[in-house]
């Protein structure tokens, strides 16, 4: 109970640091913008995977849908750059959420590994469809319109945009996990048959959770398409074996089913990845593959899970504080 003052200060410090990045480290704006994106990835994945126990390999689907929807609106609606971007991202997010609602009753009825493999197929199918569809540029993908501001303004703008996305997602999920909704998700994770036997409308909760996850991913998709400056169906939008797996991995690395775990996992993973790209020329992708295997095989409990085993009573307190109020 004596943690809050310290915690508030820590949060304030991180916030201030995050806001000052474009001034302090202008060279790293793009990498750090992607860090916030990774945090959103891990958080939205953990909503299903960690809190609800539905391990999806296909959440990248919603990211890609949001990305394509945004860039199509920017291309075809004839709006100004910023109007197009914001309306496009919003529309992409809604489309992604609608898609999740549509797919939910079918896909979320699958349990365990069938869900995992089914969603894997879903994400890749979307990528393959997009690569064949000429309206969205086929295999070559699409290019979003040019950023109108001065040189360097683009990076700063997208840095703050990504930061804002993460800064909205995290408190929203925190609020969500403290509500009845969060409890029901945990119940589904612990014993879905029991939840049904108690009369809980599990499908409704599961689908809503997926919609929320899809909404934030769709929103992020629009921003990332513009941040990267191109939309490629297999390598960016529906990148199952990069973004799609990273989402899962970051949440596991940090600690599944905790609020801060995915954030920590995303930060550690992103940093490691950037270091690989800098120092392991040519072998970085192999190293990353190896890292994935090593994390999953040797460290499946994650950083927070490990810390909880190490200092149970101290951690028990924090868990109580975070989760005790139903």
């Amino acid at each position: 109970m004596k943690a809050p003052p310290f915690r508030h200060m820590a949060v304030a410090a991180v916030l201030a640091l995050a806001l000052l990045v474009p001034v302090l480290a202008p060279a790293y704006r793009s990498q750090l913008a992607l860090l916030w994106v990774m945090i959103v990835f891990a958080l939205t994945w953990d909503l299903l995977g960690g809190q609800m126990g539905y391990n999806s390999f296909g959440n990248v689907l919603f990211f890609g849908v949001g990305m394509y929807a945004c860039v199509i609106i920017q291309r075809d609606a004839g709006l100004g750059y910023f109007t197009g971007l914001f309306l496009g991202s919003g529309a992409g997010a809604l489309l992604a959420a609608a898609l999740a609602a549509l797919l939910g009753s079918g896909i979320l009825g699958l349990r365990g590994h069938y869900f995992a493999i089914g969603t894997l197929g879903l994400g890749i199918a979307a990528g393959e469809l997009a690569s064949g569809w000429q309206f969205v540029g086929g295999g070559g993908g699409m290019v979003p319109p040019l950023f109108p501001g001065e040189v360097g303004g683009r990076e700063t703008f997208f840095y703050y945009l990504s930061f804002a996305l993460a800064a909205v997602t995290l408190p929203f999920l925190r609020w969500l996990y403290a509500s009845r909704f969060g409890l029901v998700l945990n119940a589904i994770r612990d014993d879905e048959d029991k939840a049904e036997a108690m009369g809980l409308r599990t499908t409704r909760y599961k689908t809503t959770a997926w919609c929320i996850s899809a909404f934030f991913l769709g929103l992020t998709g629009g921003a990332v398409g513009n941040l990267l400056g191109f939309v490629d169906p297999r390598e960016v939008a529906f990148a199952g074996s990069t973004f799609g797996v990273w989402m899962v991995l970051m949440a596991i690395l940090g600690g599944k089913g905790t609020l801060w775990g995915p954030v920590i996992g995303a930060a550690v993973f992103h940093l490691t990845k950037e270091l690989f790209w800098t120092y392991l020329l040519g072998w970085q992708r192999v190293a990353l593959g190896l890292l994935i295997v090593v994390i999953v095989v040797f460290f499946p409990v994650g950083i927070l899970g490990w810390a909880r085993e190490r200092w149970p009573e101290r951690f028990g307190h924090r868990i109580d504080e975070a989760e005790a109020g139903p």
């Binding site: 391990n55 365990g112 991995l249 295997v293």
Partner: peptide, 24 residues
């Protein structure tokens, strides 16, 4: 002996690793 999801994820990681090795 771990839960199925861990084994799926581990073999998925293996698959990415082997792809990248072959590519390199």
């Amino acid at each position: 002996d771990k839960d199925l999801f861990i084994s799926i994820l581990a073999t998925f990681g293996l698959s990415i690793l082997l792809q990248q090795l072959a590519n390199t």
